[in-house]
Each structure stands twice: as structure tokens, then as C-alpha cells.
């Protein structure tokens, strides 16, 4: 049986920026069920693998359960950072939009996770 996948963007939003030569990519679940699911499946390893060709040194994951969000710090991901990178995206501004296309195994309660259930 092949596993079906859904995109991270169907259950979360994201924002990214730079910290020197590191990038920060934060993911915010739309629902509490979505956050609990992401805690299990959106591991630092999975994010590191997804951004493999950026030559990321290491990915660290930090959790903010009260805000239904997690922050990924991509060490040395910016090829020199704002001042020295030769990439068009010197500051990692595209990474937030990009991570929303990360495929995840489809959870059984996907519809519950899509809906915003915070006050």
C-alpha cells in the first residue's frame, strides 16, 4: 500500500528570516490537532533533508506549544548571509513559502487540522 501525502501548507503557515548566516524558518499550525501532528512528523531531520541542497550545516528544532508553532534554525544555510551571499535570496526570505510544499503523510483527521480552531 502506498502512503498518500499532503502538503505542510494545508495545515500550517510559515515565516522565515536571517540570523547572520543562519536562517530561521518558523511553522505555525492552524489548529491544535495540527500542532500535535507536526510535533511527531515535522522533525529536524525531515526539514534538513528537505533543504538538503542549501548545504545546511545542521537543523535545530525549538517548540512553542502555547503558540502552536515551532522554529527551525538552519545553521549556515545562507551561503554567507545578507552581506556576502551570491544567491538572489540573500536573507532566506523564500524559505517560509518553500517549506509549505514539504510533503507529509496524510493524517486521518486532515480536515480537522485544516480548520482554524484557536480563539
Amino acid at each position: 500500500m502506498t502512503e498518500t501525502t499532503c502538503l505542510l501548507g494545508s495545515i500550517a503557515t510559515a515565516r522565515s528570516g536571517d540570523k547572520g548566516n543562519h536562517a530561521n524558518v518558523a511553522v505555525i499550525a492552524r489548529s491544535q490537532a495540527g500542532y500535535r501532528y507536526l510535533e511527531q512528523v515535522l522533525t529536524a531531520e525531515r526539514v534538513a533533508e528537505y533543504f538538503d541542497l542549501l548545504d545546511v550545516g545542521e537543523v535545530k528544532r525549538f517548540e512553542l506549544p502555547k503558540l502552536g508553532s515551532m522554529n527551525f534554525l538552519l545553521i549556515d544555510a545562507l551561503a554567507g548571509g545578507a552581506s556576502q551571499s551570491l544567491r538572489i535570496d540573500t536573507q532566506g526570505k523564500l524559505l517560509g513559502t518553500a517549506i509549505l510544499d514539504l510533503p507529509l503523510p496524510t493524517p486521518v483527521n486532515l480536515d480537522e487540522m485544516r480548520a482554524v480552531d484557536y480563539p
Binding site: T13, K19, F62, N71
Partner: peptide
């Protein structure tokens, strides 16, 4: 969502 996206913007260990 707009507020949380900014809370977690350009941070390391929250």
C-alpha cells in the same frame, strides 16, 4: 496568525 508569525520571526531559541 499574523501576530504569531512575527513573534517567531528571526529568532533562535524562543
Amino acid at each position: 496568525q499574523s501576530v504569531i508569525e512575527q513573534i517567531v520571526y528571526e529568532i533562535g531559541d524562543p
